[in-house]
Simulated assay, not measured.
Amino acid sequence: MDKSTEQESKEQDFGEKPTSVRESDHYQDEYVPGFVDKWDELIDWESRAKGEGNTIINILKERGVKKVLDVATGTGFNSVRLLQAGFEVVSADGSPEMLVKAFENARQYGYLMRTVQADWRWMNKDIHEEFDAILCLGNSFTHLFNERDRRKALAEFYALLKHDGVLLLDQRNYDSILDQGYSSKHAHYYCGDSVSVYPEHVDEGLARFRYEFLDNSVYYLNMFPLRKDYTRRLLHEVGFQEIKTLGDFKETYKENEPDFFLHVAEKEYKEDEEM
Rank of each mutant, 00 (worst) to 15 (best):
A133H: 05
D175V: 00
V195G: 08
L226V: 07
G138L: 07
R151H: 05
R210H: 14
H186N: 13
D149N: 02
Y211R: 09
I134C: 08
L221I: 08
H163V: 11
S194P: 00
K185F: 10
D193E: 10
Y109G: 03
Y189E: 08
L135W: 03
C191R: 10
D132K: 08
K228S: 04
G205H: 15
H143A: 15
D193Y: 06
R151K: 13
A118K: 04
E129I: 09
L226K: 08
Y111N: 01
L169V: 13
V166G: 01
D179P: 04
E204Q: 13
A187E: 11
P225M: 05
N105S: 12
L221H: 15
E129G: 07
Y182S: 00
F240C: 04
L234E: 12
L169C: 12
P199I: 08
L169N: 05
A187M: 10
K125D: 03
L234W: 11
R210V: 14
R114I: 04
T142P: 04
S217T: 10
A106E: 06
K152I: 05
G239S: 04
D170P: 02
L167H: 05
K152V: 09
P225L: 06
S140F: 10
G110A: 00
L234I: 07
Q108R: 08
E129R: 01
T115S: 06
F141E: 00
E242T: 11
E130P: 02
L234V: 12
M223C: 09
Y109T: 02
R121T: 00
S183V: 07
R121Y: 00
N139Q: 05
L161R: 01
F224A: 06
N173L: 03
E147I: 09
Q108D: 13
L214G: 10
R148K: 14
G205E: 15
S196P: 02
I127E: 02
G205K: 15
V202S: 12
G110M: 04
Y189G: 11
E200P: 05
C191G: 08
E237F: 07
Q117K: 07
V195P: 02
S140L: 11
H236Y: 15
